Simulated assay, not measured.
Amino acid sequence: MVVMTAHNGIMTTRRNIDFRAAHVCVEAAVTHGLRIGVPVAAAVVDGSARLTAFLRSGGAFVRSTDIAVNKAETAAGFRLETGALYGMVKDNAAVLEGLRSLPGAALFGGGVPITFANEVIGAIGVSGGSEDQDIECARVGIVAIEALLAGKSQDLGNERGPADE
């Protein structure tokens, strides 16, 4: 989806992940979790950190739902992996405390931005396994979406639709 916004009289264009691609992403992540014996929850948000797709396998911890969404929102909001964000701020007590005070901020691995044409169009968050397992599942979701976007980039990376409110 392409979103156009006006700011100080200037129009900007921003791509967002399409709902079909978001569903492919969460399904691949949850399926991989089951394949490795880890029930997980996976959430995909658009570039504005709004929930676009969610899937939780049976047996995943109930709190994994909120954590997966938080990881996706954090990765989209900061435009980098959640584990990398922690790595950047861990030695700066003031910044670390500030981030920890943000409602829903996730400062551990499992949140990964989704990029298309060098632009962050969304992010996936996975929760339910170890940090390494969550990252692995998120990356499998990214690989699935990259394969989809490579084959149908005009349809899934650039769908035109109404702007997000």
Rank of each mutant, 00 (worst) to 15 (best):
M11N: 05
F19D: 10
F54Y: 13
A29V: 09
Y86M: 14
F78H: 10
G161N: 05
G9N: 05
V120W: 01
A76G: 07
P162Q: 12
A72I: 04
E81L: 01
V2D: 01
G109Y: 03
E73K: 15
V69N: 00
K71H: 03
P162G: 14
A138P: 05
L102Y: 09
E146D: 15
A147Y: 03
A147H: 14
R139S: 07
H23I: 13
I114P: 05
I135F: 01
S64G: 10
G77V: 04
V62F: 09
G128I: 02
R35Y: 08
V143K: 14
V120C: 11
P103V: 01
D91A: 11
E159H: 12
C25Q: 06
P39R: 00
R35K: 15
T74K: 08
L34W: 03
M4I: 15
N70G: 13
L99G: 05
K152M: 12
M88V: 14
V24C: 11
T74M: 11
F116V: 09
L148W: 09
N118F: 04
S57G: 05
C25G: 03
T31K: 12
A84W: 03
G110W: 06
G129C: 07
G110M: 05
G58M: 06
A60L: 07
A93I: 06
P103G: 11
S153N: 13
F54E: 01
T31N: 14
A123D: 07
M11V: 14
V126D: 06
V140L: 04
V45W: 01
A29P: 11
A84F: 02
T52G: 00
I36N: 06
E136C: 12
K152P: 00
V38F: 02
S64H: 03
L80A: 00
G37Q: 05
I121N: 02
E119H: 02
V126F: 03
G151Y: 02
E136T: 15
A43D: 08
R35V: 13
R14C: 09
P162C: 06
G87C: 04
E73N: 10
T31Y: 01
R56Y: 02
V38R: 10
C25P: 00
N92P: 00
N118E: 14
R79E: 12
R14W: 06
S48D: 13
F19Q: 12
A94V: 15
P39T: 06
I135E: 08
F116W: 12
G77R: 06
I10W: 07
T52R: 15
K90R: 12
Y86K: 08
P113Q: 08
G141T: 13
I145D: 05
G77S: 13
V40L: 08
G83A: 12
A106W: 10
G111W: 07
E146I: 11
P103T: 07
R50V: 09
E146Q: 14
A43W: 00
V26I: 14
G47Y: 04
V69H: 00
F78Y: 13
R100Q: 14
R14V: 15
I135H: 00
I67L: 06
A43I: 11
